[in-house]
Every structure is written in C-alpha cells, then in structure tokens.
Simulated scan of single mutants.
Amino acid sequence: MKRICLLTLLFFLCFISFQPATAQVNYKAEMKALSRNIQQYFFLQKEGYYKETVHPEKDGRPVSYLWPLCAMLQASNEARDAPLMKQVYMVIGKYLDPRSPAPGYASYPMEKGGGSRFYDDNQWIGITAMDTYERTGKKAYLETGKLIYRFMMTGYDTISGGGLYWKEDEKKSKNTCSNGPGILLALQLHHATKEKAYLDTALLLYKWTNQQLKAPNGVFYDNIEVPGGKLVKWMFSYNAGTMLQANVYLYEATGDTAYLTEARSIAKAATAYFLSGEKFLDAYWFNAVLLRGYEHLLRHDADTTHIVAFRACLDHEILHQKSANGLFKKEKELDLVAQGGMLEMLARFAAMQRRGMLK
C-alpha cells in the first residue's frame, strides 16, 4: 500500500512538473491587475506626474525621468487603454523642450528644470505615436511622429561614417539604441506618407548600423565611441528587437525577401542569446522591444519558436517575481520602467491569447 501511495505521489509530482506553466496564466487578468498597481504606487495624482520608483528617489528627484514614460506609453497603446494613454501623453507633454535646433522631449520636466535630450527617448515616443496613428488615423499622432523625426535628424552627421548620436549635449557615442528606433520611425513615416525621403533615411541608417554595430553572433553591439571608433560590445535584447523589426518593415516597404531572411536570422540569434534559459537575460522593457520584433515577424512567418521561448521566460517571471504589492521584479528596486515593460508584454500576450494564438 505504501508503495502504491509513493508511486502515486511520484506520478503526481511528475505530472505537475511537466505541465506548461502557460496554462495557468490569464494574461489579461495579469495585465489589468498590474495596470491598477502601477497607478496606485507610481502615479502622483495631486502633482500630475509619475514617480520613478516605489520608494523616494535617492537623489531627491520628486518625479520620473522621461524614459519610463516611454515604456508606459507603448504599454497603454498595446493594452488599448485610452484613458491611461491620454494620461501618459499629458504627463509627457510637460517634458517638451521647444529650443533649437528643433523641438524635442527633455529627459526631465521643463517646469522642474528640464534636462538633456536623448534621441532614443524621443524615438520611442515617436514609434508609439505612429503605431497609434496607424490604428486610429488621428493626424495629431502623425504630427508627433514628424516632430520627433525632425529632432532626431539633428543628431545625424558623417563622423564615423554616419549614424545618429545617442545624446544631444554629449556627442560621445552612436548607439544601436538610437539608430535602430530611428530606422523604425522613418519606416513608419514612409508607410504613412509614402514619401521616399523617409525610406532613404531608413536605408542610410540601416546600412550604417549593420556595418558598424552588428556582432558576429547575429545580434548587435551597444555603441561605437566618437571619436576613436572603439566598439562598446554590450549586447541588449532591445537592440536586436529594433533591428529585427526594421528588417520586417523593410521587407514590407520594398518586397525584397533578403530583408525577411535577415529578420529570421536576427530572431534566431536573439532567441539563442537572450532566451536560452528559464529567465529573461535582460530587463523587462528591453525584452518588450524584442517581443515587438517577434510579433511583427509572425505576420510573414508562421514559426512560433521565438514566441514559445519568450513565453516560458515571461511565465517564469509571473510565477516567481511578483512582489507582495503586485508589482514585478521583486529582487530589484521596483521601478516604473520595469513595470511598463512588463505591462506591454502582458498586453501583447493577452491579445495573442484572445486571438487563440497560444496553445
């Protein structure tokens, strides 16, 4: 009898261990819960701002830098949460710096002293604006995309052969994280307007980024120092994500299957490098950008290998990294950019689950 009970117990434990964790996850419910918790712990209702971390800022800053708001903006768009998107856009509006050579968004609110202007932070806003324009047709979003395009092109020169700088007031590096999203924004504008100049810009930046920053393993280095040309060989998932998606957009714009082949190659390399274990190698928001590329590729390639690998890592975080207050990444300081990245990932998987794409 004891042996039968022991065998039954062992069978039960094996059964549990081989059940896919994904079967237990309701992504829409997780998304809605996280959105509520973000509002509770990060939004300062009286001040009309978000703060950057749950706990008081170590340097005394009362409100968030711009980057976490970029994460929240795309997350609200993917969640189709119009009130949240309206709120985030309202907050971001307080960061707009009108100074020459072109208006762009500062890293800190203008009424609180402003800050440096980063080309990539602006591009993330532009990308979301163009996504929203494609979905809604509202011209205000197209105008935002054009405004940011004009600003980002003030960061272009021919030093190091071309490319966009990362930071306006310290032109010390040209990064994949400013050129990859720059390609995307240019291609989105080309798709919306059919103006060839935007496609020309995308191809110019695409060629430079591949020549200067593509790593032998198929993903991308972080940046090249200016002057000097030293490569900084950090590799992040969001850089793979933007270049993956850039190739999909280029395939759609030109019909050239070489871009689709390259997109598949980057996806394979990114999965091997960033998603080989049960946990995400990179930060949540970086992975959210990678997921954008994987999802876009699915429109033209039915291979779900990358989504399956991504889902396993996402479910591990849901099951093991939720804090007592319902926020994520309990091993780290609970910050807004991480929650925004998780919210976007949950929104995207909730949509896939709703459409019956997840088994």
Rank of each mutant, 00 (worst) to 15 (best):
K233R: 14
A215R: 03
G218W: 09
G228M: 11
F236N: 11
G229T: 06
N223K: 11
V226C: 09
G218A: 10
Y206K: 10
I224V: 14
W208V: 02
F220D: 05
T209S: 15
W208K: 12
L205Q: 01
A215V: 05
G229A: 04
P227G: 06
K233C: 13
Y206V: 08
V232H: 14
E225K: 13
A202L: 07
V226D: 07
N210F: 15
D200G: 10
Y221Q: 07
N217L: 12
L204T: 06
T209G: 01
Q212S: 13
L213D: 00
K233S: 11
L213A: 08
L213H: 03
E225W: 06
K230Q: 12
W208I: 03
D200M: 03
M235F: 07
I224E: 04
L231N: 02
G218R: 02
Q212W: 10
Y221I: 05
T209R: 04
A215Q: 04
K233V: 11
Y221L: 00
N223T: 08
L199A: 03
Y198G: 07
K214I: 07
L204N: 12
N223F: 14
L205H: 02
E225R: 13
K233W: 06
D200F: 01
V219M: 11
N210R: 10
L213Y: 10
Q211A: 15
P216Y: 03
L204P: 02
Y198E: 05
Y198M: 11
N210S: 10
K214Q: 15
Y198C: 11
V219Y: 08
Y221T: 04
L213P: 06
V232I: 12
W208Y: 07
P227W: 02
L204M: 13
K207G: 07
G229R: 09
L205G: 01
L203W: 01
G218Y: 11
Q212R: 14
P216I: 11
L199W: 08
L204Q: 14
Q212M: 15
L231C: 05
Q212I: 09
L203P: 05
W234T: 09
P227H: 04
M235N: 01
I224K: 08
L199V: 05
Q211D: 15
N210A: 09
V219T: 15
N210M: 14
G218I: 08
Q211W: 09
I224H: 02
D222I: 08
D222N: 09
W208F: 06
A215C: 08
K230G: 02
F236E: 00
G228P: 02
K207F: 14
F220P: 02
L204H: 07
F220K: 02
D222M: 13
D222K: 01
K230L: 12
G218Q: 07
D222F: 14
V226M: 01
G228D: 04
F220V: 08
W208S: 04
T209V: 14
V219A: 09
W234Q: 06
P227E: 02
D200N: 13
I224Q: 08
F236C: 09
G218S: 10
T201L: 05
V232L: 13
D222Q: 05
F220Y: 14
L199F: 10
A202Y: 01
Y206S: 05
A202N: 00
G218L: 11
L199Y: 02
L205S: 03
L213W: 05
P227F: 05
L205M: 01
F236Y: 14
V219W: 08
N223R: 13
